[in-house]
Computed example of a mutant assay.
Amino acid sequence: MAKYQFFCLPETERRNFTFLDMASSTFQEEKAQLLQAGFIVDDDVIYADTPKEATDKFRSHFTHAVGDYAHAHVAGGMAAGLMNLLRWFK
C-alpha cells in the first residue's frame, strides 16, 4: 500500500490540491517546490492502493472513519438507525 501526502492552497478550502507519492525518488524535491509555491501540507498521510483511492479518501475528508466510529457506539448506532427509518418513511 502506497503512502500519499496531499497539499492544498490555503485560501481554496481544499478545492485546489495536489498530492505526491512518498515513495518517489523525487518526493523531497517536489515537496519543497510545492511548499515554496505556497501550498501547505493538508491532513495526515493517506495510505491507499491507487492514486484514485487516495484522492477519494482525501475528498471524503475521512468522514467514513467518523461514521464508523459513531456507529460503533450504541447512541451513534441508534441515531443512525432513526435517521434511516425517517428517510424510509419519506
Rank of each mutant, 00 (worst) to 15 (best):
I46Y: 12
P51W: 08
G38H: 09
F39W: 08
A70M: 14
A75T: 05
E53A: 15
T50N: 04
H61E: 12
D68R: 15
G38E: 07
Y47D: 11
V41P: 03
H61A: 12
H71F: 01
H61L: 10
D42W: 12
A75E: 11
D44C: 07
P51R: 08
P51T: 04
A37I: 00
D42T: 10
H64L: 07
A72T: 04
D43R: 15
K52Y: 06
D56T: 05
D68S: 11
I40P: 00
V41H: 02
V74Y: 11
G76R: 05
F39Q: 01
G67K: 07
G67L: 09
G76M: 05
D56E: 14
Y69M: 07
A48R: 03
K52H: 07
D43N: 14
R59A: 02
D43A: 08
A48T: 04
H61P: 00
R59S: 01
A65T: 08
D56C: 06
D42L: 05
A72N: 10
I46T: 09
S60P: 00
A48I: 03
K57L: 14
F39V: 01
V74A: 10
K57H: 05
F58A: 01
A75H: 06
Y69C: 03
V66C: 02
D49F: 11
A75P: 02
H64Y: 13
D43K: 10
T55N: 08
A72G: 14
S60F: 07
A72W: 04
K57Q: 13
A37E: 15
D42H: 12
H71N: 14
A54N: 07
S60V: 01
P51L: 03
A70T: 02
I46A: 05
I40Y: 02
V41D: 04
H64W: 11
F39E: 04
I46H: 12
V66K: 08
T50I: 07
V66F: 08
A72S: 15
T55C: 11
F58N: 05
E53L: 12
V45W: 09
A54D: 03
H73P: 00
D56Q: 13
D68M: 13
D49S: 14
D42M: 10
S60R: 13
V74T: 09
H64Q: 12
F62C: 01
A54M: 08
D43T: 09
R59C: 07
D44Q: 14
H64K: 06
F62T: 01
D43I: 00
T63S: 14
H61Q: 15
V41F: 01
H73C: 02
A48C: 06
Y69N: 03
D44P: 01
D56M: 10
V74Q: 11
A72F: 05
Y47T: 13
A72E: 08
F39M: 08
I46E: 09
H61R: 15
V74M: 07
D56I: 06
G38P: 12
F39T: 03
F58M: 07
I40W: 01
D56R: 11
I46P: 09
K52A: 02
H71E: 14
T63Y: 12
A37P: 03
P51Q: 05
S60W: 05
K52Q: 13
S60L: 11
V45F: 12
A37H: 13
T50Y: 10
T63R: 14
Y69H: 07
D56A: 10
A48N: 06
A54T: 06
A75F: 09
A65G: 09
F58Y: 15
A54G: 10
A54C: 06
A65K: 13
H64P: 00
